[in-house]
Design a protein around this nucleic acid. Structure first.
Lengths: 324, 324
DNA sequence: TTGTAGGCGTTATCAA
DNA sequence: TTGATAACGCCTACAA
């Protein structure tokens, strides 16, 4: 900027005025400055500007894996909101490792991001408590964090499970098996709980349950067992995407197979035979709501921490009535 | 940092020394400083540090749509490399809009990112030429940009097409139709060219071609026509993911359907009936190579611009031999 | 309308 | 071993 100033034979401040479109600059002076800017290819250094103002116009997002469709939808939604707020989004994958998550958060905080959106790894987050107490806006997505109180945006896992169970019951399935993911995941726990509650509402025992991780082979064995029981399991609910796909692989080419409802929608679910009915989460809404919430905090709103639960949507395709 | 300094009763510089693990600090002094840091919850302001050093330890990535599995795989790969290089990744979706791409690039440059990875929208990129000439490291991915000379990482579209054609020919298909995407996309053009070349190598005319955008209905009509010709089209190559899925929808429930090879792999392609054979691109490699290239530039390597072409991989499943 | 001085939080330089 | 001072590039406050 000094270079521009000397080239245009004006002071630093005048250049600053022109760059920021401030009033009180004579047109011909402004023109001279603009010419100098162009000739020198000058571009204001946002970092320096922000050093003064204290705000960086950036927010950080930490997910498990950016390449996962669910998280990338969340990320894209966050970025969209950030862009509309003239902020920039910094992202990283923690890969489920608490240490890495903390390291990434540290790096983001050192850069003075204006806020953080986190899909928290399974672990205590008290290391964030100080920052939150000092006023750092943080929003947790998809699962809550322990050790800190802060805004949290979740999907309605219980409600989703209920819709799945209700759907299968309505189709006449009396005994439903639940294939959940590793209970170390908060969502896996909630969905299992949701399954149990929903079954209880139908006065049915939730006694056919297996929590992951699962391989296709293991699932096949399980299903052989479950479908041979008396009364037989005629329908299956899978606790997430990964499990659904594994189950699909297990079922492939089998002569007998239960009806199926999967938790979490996935691309081409409608193109499989049978088309898979699912409880759809809304990753875009999750990301959008989380980012909106974050920005409301960034803009100074400080009511007590909120917990937003977004509805899921049962998408009925064919696999609910499928049973051979 | 001043606060820490006064609390530890040392000078600013001494705190800086401790923070940066510089030598020549008496252990007990360092200890006092560390205590003060802890008590005050001090954390170095990277922005200020970077203002001095001039480098921001950040790179920018601009893709069409972060939520698209292909780009999110690229993004995740870039982030991984960036993290290993102690850099941070800033991302945004340009949504195919040249204006937006330019605006985003501008914002990133104002933040003084150390380099840029861009999936260029269809348009001239001469607006980047000055920055590149001034030494800004830029890598284009997936498609080249016109108007600037800079490193570019591409998939082998022609080679991929050839493998698809060869495969179908080997299975006895004599007449192959090509369903490409909108030729405004560079990749759509290259793949069409690849198709033509490959067909020519088999002394077959590449005379059954339709470029998109396509709806499922339109595809159905096309196929009715193509399969009714003499000799009939018995196999179909789709030019990308989107087209493949649209074609699949079009084919759904039809009594007659051609064999199919799709360009670009997609999740669950192996779970469809028939399992879809594809020419797989390698988004993770694309991202990794691009980021590696970028960092080699950031680290000062300046040979002339490189063009890296990554191989594709034909994944044979069932749909090549499928034909009814 | 234009310019000067001071400071944002850090590090480099050089002196003590 | 420690510290004072001047940058880095910008903006705010105030003065001319």
């Amino acid at each position: 900027m000094v270079d521009v100033a000397s080239r245009a034979r004006v002071s630093l401040k005048t250049v600053s005025r022109v760059v920021n479109r401030e009033p009180n600059v004579r047109p011909e002076t402004a023109e001279r400055v603009r010419a100098a800017i162009k000739e020198l290819g000058f571009r204001r250094n946002d970092g320096a500007m922000r050093l003064r103002s204290g705000r960086t116009a950036s927010i950080g997002l930490i997910v498990e894996d950016l390449a996962n469709p669910f998280y990338s939808a969340v990320a894209a939604a966050c970025e969209r909101v950030a862009r509309r707020q003239d902020h920039v989004l910094i992202t990283a994958s923690a890969e489920g490792l608490p240490d890495r998550e903390q390291a990434i958060a540290g790096a983001f905080l050192a850069r003075r991001v204006d806020g953080l959106i986190i899909v928290p790894a399974q672990s205590d987050h008290k290391w964030l408590a100080d920052e939150v107490a000092r006023g750092l806006p943080v929003v947790f997505v998809d699962r809550p964090a322990t050790g800190v109180e802060s805004d949290t945006v979740l999907a309605d896992n219980e409600g989703g499970m209920r819709s799945a169970v209700d759907h299968l019951m309505a189709l006449g399935h009396e005994r439903i098996g639940f294939l959940g993911d590793d209970p170390q995941f908060w969502t896996a726990q909630r969905r299992l709980a949701g399954f149990r509650t929903a079954m209880a509402r139908h006065d049915r025992p939730a006694d056919v349950v297996a929590m992951g991780p699962h391989s296709a082979d293991a699932i096949r064995e399980l299903l052989d067992d479950w479908t041979a029981r008396e009364p037989a399991v005629t329908a299956l609910i899978t606790g997430n995407n990964r499990v659904t796909v594994e189950a699909l692989r297990a079922l492939r080419g089998q002569t007998t197979a239960p009806a199926l409802v999967g938790f979490d929608d996935f691309e081409l679910a409608d193109m499989l035979s049978p088309a898979i009915s699912v409880v759809a989460q809304q990753p875009v809404e999750l990301g959008t709501v989380a980012a909106d919430l974050l920005f409301s905090r960034i803009h100074g709103e400080h009511t007590s921490p909120r917990r937003v639960v977004l509805p899921t949507e049962l998408i009925v395709r064919e696999s609910g009535r499928w049973h051979r």
